[in-house]
Structures are given as structure tokens and as C-alpha cells.
Amino acid sequence: MAWFAGAAAIGCLVVGLLHLHRLVTVPAGRAGEASSAAAATGMAAMFSPLGDPVPLAVWIAVFGGCAAWTFLLAARDEDVTHHLLCSGAMLFMLVGHNAHGSGLVMVSVVALVAAGYFAWHGLRCVDRFRIACTGHPRTVAGAQLVSAVAMSGMLVAMI
């Protein structure tokens, strides 16, 4: 299973780097690109078979900051809800994996609902990928598909 974790970590890291590149080179949608880069990098660290080199408090600050930034921009950006859910899901995975006792049921329910959302989002990305002819729209749709599949898989693993 370590080979899968390593491959998933590398895949998520590549997606994170793609979003960082777009953050610098594409002037529109910077909040979304930053949020997506943070989520992909966070998932790469979670998948890493070598362990997460970043302290939990730093990740909580990063995803809390992404959620707050996204929330503040909500009135101006139509894709904000998805990025807000991404940041919330990352925070949930960071703190929810330590649930014990009665809290475990609630964690499982939230993880299942969130996994369903990201699976649905993955299907939307497949449609976007098919519709886009070439170039950046297709690359972005593919990167978002990889992120959606990774997020769904990590959430299902929490159940």
C-alpha cells in the first residue's frame, strides 16, 4: 500500500504545482488557484509515506485562512462555494481523523456526505474535460478531477 500512497502523494503534488503555476501566470481566479494549490499540497502531505513534514497547526492556519479568504470573496466569485467546501473538508480531515466514541458516527456521516460531494464534483470535471478542446481549460479540468478523486478517497478512508 506504500506504493499507492507514494504515487498519490506525487500526483497531488504535481496538481499543487500546476495550481501554483496558474496562480502566478493567470490573473483571474487567484483565490481559487491558491485554495486549490493548498488543498493539493495538503493532500500530498497526508498521502506521503514519509510522514507529513508540516505541523498540524500550520495546516489548520493555511486551510482556515483559505476558508476565510474564500468566504470574504463569496459575493464576487461564482465558484467560491466549491473552494470553501475544499478548505472545510481539508480542515475536517486534519482534525476529524482523531475522533473516538460517539463522535466517530458524526465523523463518518460528514465524511460520507463530503465524499459524495467530491465524487459529484469529479463527474463535473469529467464533463468539463470532455467539452474543453485543448489547452488550459482541459488541464485545469484534469487537475481538478485528480483532486476530486483524491479528496473522495481520503474522505471514504475516514469512514
Rank of each mutant, 00 (worst) to 15 (best):
F4D: 12
G6A: 14
A8S: 11
L13A: 14
V14E: 06
L17E: 08
L18P: 05
L20I: 06
T25G: 07
T25N: 10
A28C: 01
G29D: 12
A31R: 13
G32L: 07
S35R: 01
A37I: 05
A38T: 00
A39D: 01
A40F: 13
A44T: 08
M46R: 15
M46N: 07
S48P: 01
G51E: 08
P53C: 06
P53W: 05
V54Q: 07
P55R: 02
L56R: 15
A57Y: 01
A57G: 05
V58M: 12
W59G: 02
F63C: 04
A67H: 13
L72H: 15
L73Q: 14
A75S: 15
E78M: 08
E78D: 13
D79N: 10
H83K: 06
L85Y: 11
M90F: 11
M90Q: 04
L91V: 06
M93E: 04
L94C: 08
V95N: 05
H97I: 01
N98Y: 14
S102N: 12
G103C: 06
V107I: 11
G116Y: 05
G116R: 00
F118A: 01
A119F: 12
W120Q: 09
H121P: 02
H136W: 04
A141M: 06
G142Y: 07
A143S: 14
L145Q: 06
L145A: 13
V146S: 00
V146H: 05
M151E: 04
S152P: 04
M154I: 00
A157N: 12
I159F: 14
